[in-house]
Design a protein around this nucleic acid. Sequence first.
DNA 1: ATGATGCCTTTGTGATCACATCAAGCGGAC
DNA 2: GTCCGCTTGATGTGATCACAAAGGCATCAT
Lengths: 190, 190
Amino acid sequence: MHGELGPGEALTLRGIGKTYDVSMTPARESVRRLVAEGALFLSSSGRVSTPELSNERIEELATLRAMLEPELATRALPRAHFALIERLETINNGVSQMVARHDASGYIRMNLEFHRTLYLRAQAPAMLAMTETVWLQLGPTMRALYGRLNRKEPPYHHRLILAALKAGDEPGLRLAVRTDATQGLRMLKG
Amino acid sequence: MHGELGPGEALTLRGIGKTYDVSMTPARESVRRLVAEGALFLSSSGRVSTPELSNERIEELATLRAMLEPELATRALPRAHFALIERLETINNGVSQMVARHDASGYIRMNLEFHRTLYLRAQAPAMLAMTETVWLQLGPTMRALYGRLNRKEPPYHHRLILAALKAGDEPGLRLAVRTDATQGLRMLKG
DNA sequence: ATGATGCCTTTGTGATCACATCAAGCGGAC
DNA sequence: GTCCGCTTGATGTGATCACAAAGGCATCAT
């Protein structure tokens, strides 16, 4: 999810087991779970690797983010008090730090933590789980994206989200969230 | 998914293995996958059972269906030629038969096949997979629902969907799909 | 130099086992 | 009669093993 692995990287059960000092059995269970969630690709011969997403697949996942995340933000809006907004601003500073030190994986992690912190207020665990599944599928691809364009600007859309939260502006919030979720992926196409 | 198991039914790895004549290992992998997809509930002690969904959870899943399925239908609409509509009508007759013979599980199966056949035309595998994950989570609950109210009328909203498909009416299609997906679940609340 | 072919290492699969833990049922005490 | 505690059977977990298949590499022929 955090882009620690790039697209198309191969994994072996014995290798995973050795990394985490367990036997093949728990490694297999974890891998099968991640395959079920679409986070890993299982070849016909049983080999596992991180997925290499086609442009069509990326577009689909971007659409899913564009559908799910504004809904979560809307549900979180009436519960977003000052303490939460303050926490989001703190996380947002963390995002800026990661941008400054060119830490792609850290950037993704902080960026998703920003979104998750907001969405947790929506009190919608099934919807949040589904959203995180999408993030999981996009992890390796997002690494490739943010590694390619080494952005220097701090997150602009996050400020729009925070402003809309403070103003209680639901349409503005939905638009800001939707744009933030899809802007990066759009650059990956083509 | 098809409601062959009711909510809260317990399963054991050894029992599953015996049923399908395999050892515990494949049974465990399957169970873990279904748990990852939310189709089965894993207690803190490791026991597995079908989930008993709270009203809040049902509302969430209904909202997810209401967001995902109209989008899939919209994407399928331009590709929905006569042969597809004919096939949908055939499936719809099957739904009516299941209603007539009071076969709850068969009704759910045919109903979902109707939707899946349409959505396959959307050429959106990730979105369809996510939708089927929602169906999977709702399976046992839908059994309880359709078992409770023994409906006699054939599927009304399906006819609306077919009419909208024939007319190329996108707004009508979206509304019909959304209504069909959420109508049953709404009765379960309270 | 390039392509095919054969072997060998690596890898996933399913089964089985020992062990810790949990749940339910039985029995006894008040 | 009811409630508590213990015991026993059942269950999940993680490890290991035998096996089959797949992939990679070296060798050889053209």
